[in-house]
Design a binder for these strands. Structure first.
Lengths: 119, 119
DNA sequence: CCTACAATTCAATAATCATTGAAATGAGGA
DNA sequence: TCCTCATTTCAATGATTATTGAATTGTAGG
């Protein structure tokens, strides 16, 4: 992944509505959700959600597909993985065992994000 | 992690200089780097790097410590983990086995970010 | 104590971005 | 074909955010 695209992705995730959309779709999984359902779920106007969906698509965080009259969006898990990998690339100068323990809990799942004592 | 802080973190990472600083410090590991060395490494003015360092510190992405006359910054690996965990929380409605394969390569390390066929 | 240096603060400017409502597109069903 | 509905586009406005250079703080070493 190039730096430029990573910045676009982080910028996309830095906005309230867009972050909620991505998390909604991450939790929805591969089935995804229609644009209208997303708009209702995050409580913004159709016009505005369309604006943000395009931004997220351009950032490689979500992917659209047509289904009947609706357009279904789902999280782009490959894009998400690439973004995280870019951020963490060559961590600890190629000795990930140094920071791996601190990152172990970052794997996705229902309850991996536990509260813990911060260093 | 709260949504608000996650947004602050993503916004911090969305800026060219700040993203470079974080990746620099991720690769530098726990030893970290002095503010001046960071400024030189990313080629911006001391004033400007100070501005961005404060922003990254406030976002929980880096942590400072004093050492003689210098201030040494290092990546906050706990903060990075929390951010990733927040983004991926409850992925696939609590069935991470669906998306885990797509995210497996996101672990930090020297060469985990391989090129692969995107779905 | 006083000088030098590393880092930060400050005010002003320029640039980018989110939001709104109305109008337009385009795919399906009757 | 015609009509309906889901989504998108557009232009205008208001609100953040990055950058710059000068001035300031605070820490040490002589």
């Amino acid at each position: 992944m190039e730096e430029r695209q990573a910045r676009t992705a982080f910028a996309a995730l830095s906005q309230e509505t867009r972050l909620r959309i991505v998390r909604l779709l991450v939790q929805a999984g591969p089935d995804g959700m229609a644009a209208g359902a997303i708009a209702e779920s995050v409580a913004v106007s159709p016009s505005n959600v369309s604006f943000h969906l395009k931004d997220l698509e351009h950032a490689g965080m979500i992917v659209p597909r047509r289904e009947a009259r609706s357009i279904i969006y789902s999280a782009d898990f490959n894009g998400l993985r690439d973004l995280i990998a870019f951020l963490m690339k060559d961590c600890c100068a190629g000795h990930p065992e140094i920071c791996a323990p601190a990152l172990a809990a970052a794997q996705c799942g229902p309850s991996t994000a536990k509260k813990k004592a911060r260093a």
